[in-house]
Design a protein around this nucleic acid. Structure first.
Lengths: 232, 232
DNA sequence: CGGAATCCTCTTCGATACTG
DNA sequence: CAGTATCGAAGAGGATTCCG
């Protein structure tokens, strides 16, 4: 069984041969918030159908975008995670995600739309200026429309993970609360970060200097070019 | 008939709801080389099938990524072209295309792979540094594996168009010849521009200072981050 | 002739059921 | 928990036909 390919000698077409099918890039997005198990993916990607997920994961493994790994001792569960190539792909998705949120926000939020706090955060995390956060070791827990996710700054690295809202996890420095419409307005550049804060649409609670550092490390206003600015 | 949507309140998912279906992004890539007629698109996108092309164009019009326009007087033919939103999308595709060419070049080139000189050039043109070319008015004709395309620098703007190799078009300043493997190696960063020139894999013929300007305006070596560097 | 709509076949997707 | 098997529905590919 040979998958449908475009048969074009072109970077975009070759990329789409690998990650252009339905659901594939959303699986990659899920794994941008750390390694996940098969059933985590199945739960996050409502509607995917179990055999299609299995098939997509196999394709991504074959393309060396994703690898399957058995977690050490206590858990011993199988997880899927991004390879180096997968992480490079995830950086290439930021401009596309910013374009999508900027041009394609139909209604503010359909009542039956799915939403997870990690979805915007894996992209916004890419906008954090590493020079500003180089020596910081802070943990931010976001609460957005009933969903929670955590951004950690460690040794100049930024990581995003999902989190249960009532997970004790005592190392949280700042709790940040907003609704889904707000983070989309900010992501689309319709609302600047300070506007959102002064309007009370984003509420910080906890270590004030940690909160200030995060605001300083993010662009004041996200533009379509934010994803194009070199972050080295 | 309601199109298949992901139903997720996420920028990437919303973007893919519009441009994530088969062929859609390749239609956008075609229009990055200027307005084209229906039958031009049908010819360039081998295998698409006429009714699918019509349907995709209608979706892109509805999403205001593409618009249909009647050309003035003499030709009076219908052309499709990118809107401002479509041009922003095309900028967001550069990192994805660079990822694709870097990680997914299977064999050097399958003998039955389609190829057009404009395909790599619409992306490479985005890497041209506008500060360097601000006052230049040069025309470069590329000849790659039997296919030709033209890059024009005008008033700080860069445009790419397809061109018939034997089109007289007397305003060409430099002819640039290479094979498809070379431009892919350069795009993937496996070969630097000066290496390619000194190895004779890229041959310039014409106005030497125009040629030197183009080389100066391009990155010496294309990296996965080249698409992420702000070009303002 | 350019720009499609129709029809038919084949493939892919989505959902449910089932298995190691 | 991590998938495979199955099957009806939707989408894609190719040829032909239609319209202005």
């Amino acid at each position: 069984m040979t998958r449908r390919q475009y048969g074009q000698f072109c970077g975009l077409a070759m990329g789409l041969d690998v990650v252009g099918e339905r659901w594939t890039l959303l699986i990659v997005r899920e794994l941008m918030a750390g390694p996940k198990r098969y059933s985590d993916l199945l739960e996050a990607l409502d509607g995917i159908g179990t055999s299609l997920l299995a098939s997509r994961l196999r394709q991504l493994e074959d393309a060396e975008v994703v690898l399957k790994r058995r977690l050490p001792k206590p858990s011993a569960s199988l997880v899927y995670q991004l390879t180096e190539s997968g992480r490079e792909l995830s950086r290439a998705l930021l401009p596309l995600a910013l374009w999508g949120v900027r041009h394609q926000t139909h209604a503010p939020k359909q009542p039956d739309d799915m939403f997870r706090a990690e979805w915007p955060l894996v992209f916004i995390a890419q906008l954090i200026d590493g020079d500003v956060t180089r020596d910081a070791r802070y943990t931010y827990r976001f609460h957005i429309d009933g969903s929670s996710a955590t951004i950690r700054l460690r040794d100049g690295e930024v990581s995003v993970t999902e989190s249960d809202a009532d997970d004790p996890d005592g190392d949280v420095d700042v709790d940040i609360t907003m609704d889904a419409a707000t983070i989309v307005d900010v992501s689309a550049g319709r609302l600047s970060l300070t506007e959102a804060v002064t309007d009370g649409r984003i509420v910080f609670d906890g270590n004030a200097s940690a909160a200030a550092l995060l605001v300083e490390a993010l662009p004041e206003r996200i533009t379509i070019d934010s994803g194009l600015i070199d972050q080295t």
